[in-house]
């Protein structure tokens, strides 16, 4: 019985980690949808979100609820900047051939990688390479008893925030003109252009939305773990990326499901393995998935990309 409760607790922890991965994976998926390229700087957006949040907290000490909108704004800004810097210069050619060309895809893959290196190094200089502590008032580590199980406030905040953001995203994508634009461009960029959608603006919006989700994930984890560092974005970035690929690259529900799966299996794995080995679980799941589902679990025979 004790063990069961413990397991349940681990599942809850895993779900909260999974939702963090999911928030990031959605950003990857949205951006892959509209541009058909991978944004390697997404992990840095997460880190920026955490640092902006921390700066706001240390400077102004606002209530927690006020931190989130500021982080959202910072995320949106960094997304727009990222698109300007690492993606737009490579969209000079808009015909179908170069949109599908491997060269262009690889160029933006590498340019986003280069921008991520630069961003991370700049943060290293501004904040130093060490972990930054979070003021204890803002730490989300207080345990709350729900029936027989103890849940950290951080988990609850992550669940609540993720639910709100997923709902808002759903609303945005399916109930607004902007969302229609994003879906149209994802489906067929040239076609969208022909029916009069401003594809450039849609792409920028997508980056802004995806980066808002990523930045929020960053500050949530920062407050939950109580430590923020310029390198913190790498691991969750890779795992969210893995979730996107396992989900089939272009499926948001697929990415969320796989992100939750990764989070829970990592959390449960720590019961059986020392924590150093837990990352092996993620990568093994990735490789096994790719071997048996070369297009991801939720991928639908997308054209050979």
């Amino acid at each position: 019985m004790i063990f069961d409760i413990f397991l349940l607790q681990q599942v809850i922890n895993g779900l909260s980690i999974g939702f963090v991965y999911a928030l990031m994976a959605i950003g990857f998926t949205l951006i892959f949808g509209v541009l058909n390229v991978v944004n390697f700087a997404h992990g840095e957006v997460y880190t920026i979100g955490a640092f902006i949040g921390l700066m706001v907290i240390t400077a102004l000490a606002p209530p927690l609820v006020a931190v989130v909108p500021l982080v959202l704004a910072a995320g949106a800004l960094s997304g727009v900047g990222l698109e300007r810097l690492a993606f737009r210069p490579f969209r000079r050619f808009t015909d179908e051939a170069s949109q599908k060309s491997r060269a262009m895809r690889e160029a933006t893959l590498l340019s986003s990688l280069a921008v991520s290196i630069i961003a991370r190094e700049i943060m290293m200089h501004l904040f130093g390479g060490d972990m930054q502590g979070v003021p204890s008032d803002y730490l989300l580590q207080r345990p709350v008893a729900i029936g027989p199980i103890m849940v950290a406030t951080g988990s609850l905040v992550i669940f609540a925030t993720s639910a709100v953001m997923l709902g808002a995203l759903q609303f945005l994508l399916y109930r607004t003109q902007t969302g229609l634009g994003i879906r149209a461009v994802s489906n067929n960029q040239l076609g969208a252009r022909y029916v009069g959608i401003d594809t450039d603006r849609t792409i920028v919006t997508t980056f802004a939305v995806g980066s808002m989700l990523g930045a929020t994930a960053g500050i949530l984890v920062g407050l939950y773990d109580g430590a923020i560092s310029p390198h913190m974005g790498f691991a969750p970035g890779v795992k969210a990326f893995v979730a996107m690929v396992m989900g089939g690259l272009s499926s948001i529900p697929g990415a969320v499901a796989c992100a939750l799966l990764l989070g829970v299996s990592e959390s449960i794995a720590t019961e059986f393995l020392s924590s150093g080995w837990k990352d092996l679980i993620t990568y093994s799941l990735l490789v096994i998935t790719l071997v048996f589902f070369p297009q991801g679990i939720f991928g639908h025979g997308r054209e050979r990309a």
Binding site: V242, L280, Y283, L286, V287, L290, A305
Partner: peptide, 17 residues
């Protein structure tokens, strides 16, 4: 058998493993 980005991700995963 994997194409393009899927192969790249597989090498990333194996590298991290």
């Amino acid at each position: 058998r994997l194409v393009s980005i899927y192969f790249a991700v597989a090498t990333l995963g194996i590298g991290e493993m």
